[in-house]
Design a protein around this nucleic acid. Structure first.
Lengths: 173, 173
DNA sequence: GGATGGTATTTCAGGCTTGAAGTTTTAGGC
DNA sequence: GCCTAAAACTTCAAGCCTGAAATACCATCC
């Protein structure tokens, strides 16, 4: 660490400030898009984002997941997952299956109805995202994915968010 | 619109899929960082993210803002802002000021105490962000800001999020 | 084989957010 | 000057989420 002369200190400060600006823009884009998805999911699909998210991680794992695995991948509390799965089960979209060797746990799997419903939702969601990100071309998208991968790597490695390493495949709408 | 031959259709589909992947990574980074900020703000500063956000938009506008302007910039409901400002006022960090020509409205301004508290919080927050985005160099940061600006532009222009054009300066932690 | 500690899940109280009234006030047409 | 529509704000019920118990169960160490 030899950032000991003035020029370097100034560069550090400028970079820090620019990173902050980046965070503000990252945060704004994500929340505008997420709010819009939430709204459309309610309005057009009579569903919710948390329910979609749970269905997404289940759909990605045909053998089903334990409650704890779901809450780890989505980074929400275990109690929250209980409620969401309860509702999915009530609607016949998911069901709990006993785990042979562990009577504490249960696996959650999508029913056929749940798989069908999710397939429809997933297609609609992709078209929404494609619309909202419509003015980013392939270069833009690749460039951002490259950087976000590095960022996510660091976030997973550092203490924070360390529980969610595996949740990238289908974890968020 | 002449994406009528197979090759182009295939490219469109691939781009759509890649945009979806980008969204998932965007969403994950933003939520990991935001959750961590929320946690640290509680743990280390005895504050909350919504309160910080309100103070941020107020600090950026020394003349103060109306309730409605705050809720527009932060994209939260008016009722929510009422509650947050109530709490800030209780703690002496902000106060409501009557608007001369409109007895329905009130301007909200930070008190001196509020300005001081925000200055401290803002510095800490910048260091946190600088830490969390630490493995992105200046090229990365600039590259992402460039693209996010275009994205935010499109999001503001389209119907969704149209209320929040001006909230980019200091609007989100 | 019983105690001890840890794991999987649920329950629940408390806080945050929204959306839908409700109140007061302003603005515009007539 | 009224009357209607709309705006600014507040209140409130309902839903979501968290974190902290509580419950039930597994596993390990003596």
């Amino acid at each position: 660490m030899d950032s000991s002369d003035e020029a370097t200190l100034h560069q550090d400060a400028a970079l820090s400030r620019t990173r902050l600006v980046l965070w503000q823009k990252l945060q704004k884009s994500a929340s505008v898009i997420e709010d819009e998805l939430r709204r459309r999911l309610r309005r057009d699909c009579d569903s919710t984002l948390p329910r979609f998210d749970v269905m997404a991680v289940l759909d990605a794992t045909p053998d089903g997941l334990r409650m704890r695995e779901i809450s780890d991948r989505l980074r929400v509390s275990a109690g929250n997952v209980t409620g969401i799965v309860d509702k999915l089960a009530q609607e016949g979209l998911a069901k709990r299956v006993a785990v042979p060797d562990d009577r504490r746990a249960s696996r959650v799997v999508l029913t056929e109805k749940g798989q069908g419903a999710f397939a429809v939702l997933a297609r609609i969601r992709e078209s929404w995202i494609n619309e909202m990100l419509g003015n980013l071309n392939l270069d833009d998208v690749d460039g951002m994915i490259l950087r976000l991968d590095r960022l996510i790597d660091a976030l997973d490695t550092d203490e924070f968010g360390a529980l969610a390493q595996k949740g990238t495949e289908n974890g968020g709408i």
